[in-house]
């Protein structure tokens, strides 16, 4: 149990010493490439590509860039709808949600974002499952 406590403390200390997640992701250009990369992959993804049929893909990319910037401590303010409103009627299930997560991970891999930094972003996005997934 002492080892557990030490692990947790070490993890907490590493977190506190970090710059903002926004900076760790690579700043404005990197966040834009990550958001665009995630959406490009998802539109081309046979699992979930069809869910973008009635979307303005450029607008989705711009809003996702803005949202990630906002949530990670960057100088942006998300101007889109709530997650619940923007995904209403799409009938998304957990497998769809996770397909997007995997595409986001691939986009971050391509950007050279480390695994632990990726998980800090995913930790912020994960609770959106509650609002996005309706099936």
């Amino acid at each position: 149990m002492t080892a557990l406590a030490a692990l947790l403390l070490a993890a907490g200390a590493a977190q506190a010493a970090d710059a903002t997640l926004y900076e760790d992701l690579g700043g404005a250009d990197a966040v834009e490439r990550i958001a665009h990369g995630a959406i490009d992959r998802s539109v081309a993804d046979p699992r979930i590509g069809h869910t973008f049929e009635n979307s303005n893909v450029d607008r989705v990319k711009r809003l996702l860039t803005e949202q990630i910037c906002d949530l990670t401590g960057g100088p942006c303010e998300y101007s889109g709808q709530t997650m619940e409103a923007s995904h209403k009627g799409l009938a998304l299930d957990t497998a769809d949600f996770n397909a997007l997560v995997e595409n986001l991970q691939d986009a971050m891999d391509e950007e050279g974002v480390g695994f632990r930094t990726q998980n800090r972003l995913l930790a912020i996005l994960a609770p959106m499952h509650r609002d996005v997934v309706t099936e």
């Binding site: 557990l4 947790l8 907490g12 977190q15 632990r116 998980n119 930790a123 994960a126």
Partner: peptide, 9 residues
């Protein structure tokens, strides 16, 4: 899963 710390307990 403490995703922020890449740790599961």
């Amino acid at each position: 899963l403490y995703l922020r710390h890449s740790l599961l307990l």
